[in-house]
C-alpha cells in the first residue's frame, strides 16, 4: 500500500477521490459535535458553561501532538527510507500542526483566565506547549529558508526529529511536575474520569478535528506535489531556452 502510494501520480488520483468524502465526513461530524456541545452536553458543576472551551481546546492539543508525530514519521521516511512523498507530507503537516497548537494555546489561555484567574502561568504543560509552537514556527521558517526541496527536507527532518523530544514532555509534563494544568482525564490508565455526557461530545469533536486535519493534510500534499511539478517544468523550460540561445 505504502509502496503504491509512493507514486505521486497514484497518490494524486487516490487522494482526489478521497478528498470529497473526507470533507463531507468532516462537515457532518463537526455539525453533530457542535450540536452535542451546545444543546446536549451539560454545564460543569464547578466551571459552568466555561467547560464548553474544553471541546475545542482538548482536540486542538491532541492534533498538535498528532501532526508532530506525522512530521516525525515523515522525517524518518525522508532520512531512512527516502520515500518520495515523505518530505511532501512533512511540509504539508507543519502549518496545520502549528495552527492547532496556536488554537490550543489561545483557547487554553481564554479558559485559564476565568478558571485560574490568569491567562498564563509558566508551568510545565503550558511552557512545553509554547515550546512546541516555537518548534513548529522554526520548522516553517526552515522550509522557507532553503529553496531546494530535497536539501530543505533533510534539514527539516533533522530539526523535526530533535524537536520530537518535546512530544513526551508535553504529554507527561502534568505527571512529572506539579502543574497548575490538570492531569490527563481521557487517555489514562484506569479509564477516563470525565462523565459520558461530556466524554461523547468531546470524542466526536476530536474525531471531527482529526478528519478536518487529515483533509487539510491531503489537500496540502496535493498542492505540494503540484508545486514541485511547476518547479521542475520551470527549470526544464529555462534549460530549453538556454540551449536554444546557445
Amino acid at each position: 500500500m505504502i509502496r503504491e502510494l509512493a507514486n505521486p501520480t497514484r497518490f494524486m488520483s487516490l487522494s482526489g477521490t478521497l478528498l470529497p468524502w473526507v470533507t463531507g465526513l468532516a462537515v457532518l461530524l463537526l455539525g453533530i459535535g457542535l450540536y452535542m456541545v451546545w444543546f446536549v452536553a451539560p454545564a460543569d458543576y464547578q466551571q459552568g458553561e466555561t467547560v464548553k472551551i474544553m471541546y475545542i481546546h482538548v482536540p486542538a492539543a491532541w492534533l498538535s501532538l498528532f501532526f508532530y508525530m506525522i512530521m516525525a514519521s515523515s522525517a524518518l521516511g525522508t532520512l531512512v527510507w527516502r520515500h518520495p512523498l515523505a518530505d511532501v507530507s512533512q511540509k504539508a503537516a507543519a502549518p496545520i500542526g502549528a495552527a492547532f497548537t496556536l488554537i490550543c494555546l489561545v483557547t487554553g489561555s481564554l479558559w485559564g483566565k476565568p478558571m485560574w484567574g490568569t491567562y498564563w502561568q509558566w508551568d510545565a504543560r503550558l511552557t512545553s506547549m509554547l515550546v512546541m509552537l516555537l518548534i513548529y514556527l522554526g520548522i516553517l521558517a526552515l522550509w522557507r529558508a532553503i529553496e531546494e526541496p530535497n536539501r530543505a527536507a533533510r534539514a527539516v527532518s533533522i530539526l523535526t526529529l530533535v524537536g520530537a523530544v518535546n512530544v513526551p514532555i508535553v504529554k507527561f509534563s502534568v505527571d512529572w511536575w506539579n502543574t497548575l494544568h490538570q492531569p490527563a482525564s481521557v487517555f489514562r490508565l484506569g479509564g477516563p474520569t470525565i462523565h459520558t455526557s461530556m466524554l461523547v461530545p468531546l470524542l466526536i469533536m476530536a474525531v471531527a478535528f482529526t478528519i478536518i486535519g487529515v483533509g487539510l493534510h491531503l489537500s496540502g500534499m496535493r498542492t505540494e506535489i503540484l508545486r514541485r511539478r511547476v518547479r521542475t517544468l520551470t527549470i526544464l523550460e529555462a534549460e530549453r531556452l538556454d540551449a536554444q540561445a546557445a
Binding site: E49, T50, K52, I96, A99
Partner: peptide
Amino acid sequence: MTHTFFIAFSYILTALVIAGL
C-alpha cells in the same frame, strides 16, 4: 468580562484559524 466572552472568543478564533487554513 463575562464567561460568555471567553467562550465566544475561543470558538470564533478557532473558526477563523480553521477557515484560514
